[in-house]
């Protein structure tokens, strides 16, 4: 019926602790997690409004591929296969430095490590950057 669910803010790399207010399966709002060591009960304006994008009608819930000029919803498998094919195509024509990898503040350190490892060891490029530098 009513739940308070602890989580971590997904907006920036600070990683503030949040508490989601959930009523009948729907997100009502966000509170700061008062005992979290990172934010000690404080949030920035983005964190306080974290629930808004989850409920936004504009939120993308599935990958999109442009087919004949129009975006179409596809499965993750298809989207990943499509991306891999395009990467291969570009790299076979222009070499590994023709592609780059943009890591994220919203994923774990381990995932970020994997991205740079994949870029350097598998693809063979040092083109790795991070959204915190944008």
């Amino acid at each position: 019926m009513y739940k308070l669910v602890p989580s971590v803010c997904s907006y920036c790399g600070t990683g503030c602790g949040v508490l989601f207010k959930v009523l009948d399966g729907k997100l009502l709002g966000t509170l700061p997690l008062k005992t979290h060591p990172v934010n000690e009960g404080k949030l920035c304006i983005k964190g306080w409004n974290l629930h808004e994008f989850v409920n936004s009608p504009l939120r993308l819930k599935a990958p999109l591929i442009r087919i004949n000029g129009r975006f179409a919803k596809v499965t993750w498998d298809r989207a990943i296969r499509y991306t891999a094919e395009k990467f291969r195509e570009v790299m076979s024509q222009h070499g590994p430095d023709s592609v780059g990898f943009l890591a994220s503040a919203k994923i774990t350190n381990e995932d970020n490590y994997l991205i740079q490892k994949f870029a350097r060891a598998v693809v063979g490029t040092n083109n790795v950057d991070h959204c915190a530098r944008l």
Binding site: K3, L4, P6, L19, L33
Partner: peptide, 12 residues
């Protein structure tokens, strides 16, 4: 106590 934090909770 949940996930190591004293959190508000709805008991039913």
């Amino acid at each position: 106590m949940m996930a190591g934090h004293p959190l508000p909770h709805a008991f039913g």
